[in-house]
């Protein structure tokens, strides 16, 4: 279970100074501007749920995911994932989650995929039998076979994301955070990723929180969405409710999302 209460994250950003001796001033006494990336959000995600987390670029999606995964310490508020506080119980927490950033790989660039998986096996202390079983299953479901022995840098983007997904799931995490997993991937590969993620969620009961800009992802994969804008939650509820609230049953999801973003832009 994931619980987030009044969660905030404020970044300090060095403010360029103007006027005479600007460089000197900024060296001696740098001035900072505060930017609220996440500005008091609340939500609860139950075990086994799959939730879409959407919002414009810079809305605070990645910052939320980083706080949930324990990389960032919140400025204020509470986070709890599977009963642990991510940034406090870091090690134990990290063993229980899997994270995939669609934009960057977490595998070693110059070595074959299987070697990365082998090293991760030891880092997460996965026993041999479980590792073999998972490897077999993911190789089958994600069709890793043809490129398991290839270094990551030789893989196509679609292959790389598949390898990253497998890597994130090798230690049987209870919770999976996916930050734009389908970005830049072609239509057919996307279809496959969606099927895989849905299956993992359904068959293994893995809780999934995923961010995406792809409306088809939302329609096909998730029943519930959380919409964030300028660090605040605009909508949290079912996809069905989203349609009803913003345009009717047969409205195009893309139009709805556009409208929400515009509206959010006005109020923010």
């Amino acid at each position: 279970m994931i619980t987030v209460k009044n969660l905030r994250k404020t970044y300090k950003i060095a403010k360029p100074q103007e006027g005479r001796f600007a460089t000197l001033k900024s060296l001696v006494r740098p001035r900072y501007e505060e930017r609220r990336a996440v500005d008091g959000i609340d939500f609860t995600i139950n075990d086994g749920e799959m939730v879409g987390y959407i919002g414009q670029n810079g809305a605070g999606k990645s910052t939320t995911i980083k706080m949930l995964s324990g990389i960032l310490v919140p400025t204020a508020g509470e986070v709890s994932v599977n009963g642990l506080t991510p940034h406090k119980d870091r090690r134990e927490h990290l063993r229980g989650i899997g994270v995939v950033f669609g934009q960057k790989t977490s595998l070693w660039w110059d070595v074959p995929v299987i070697d990365s998986l082998n090293i991760l096996k030891e880092m997460y202390r996965v026993d041999d039998a479980r590792f073999r079983k998972n490897l077999e299953m993911f190789t089958d479901l994600l069709d890793l076979g043809p490129f398991l022995e290839q270094p990551v840098r030789q893989l196509s983007l679609g292959q790389r994301v598949r390898a990253d997904l497998a890597a994130a799931l090798m230690h049987d995490p209870k919770t999976l955070f996916l930050d734009e997993p389908t970005i830049g991937v072609d239509v057919i590969a996307k279809e496959r990723l969606r099927e895989f993620i849905t299956e993992i969620n359904r068959e293994r009961g893995v809780t999934v929180l995923l961010t995406t800009h792809d409306v088809v992802d939302m329609e096909k994969m998730v029943k519930r969405v959380i919409v964030i804008n300028a660090g605040q939650i605009l909508y949290d509820g079912s996809m069905l409710g989203l349609r009803e609230r913003y345009g009717g049953e047969d409205a195009d999801i893309e139009d709805i999302v556009r409208e929400i973003y515009r509206e959010g832009g006005k109020t923010a």
Binding site: K66, S69, I71, R91, E92, L94, F101, L120
Partner: peptide, 12 residues
């Protein structure tokens, strides 16, 4: 490259 995140995600 901003990939240091992925190193911080390891339980080691």
């Amino acid at each position: 490259t901003g990939r240091i995140d992925t190193d911080l995600l390891r339980p080691v």
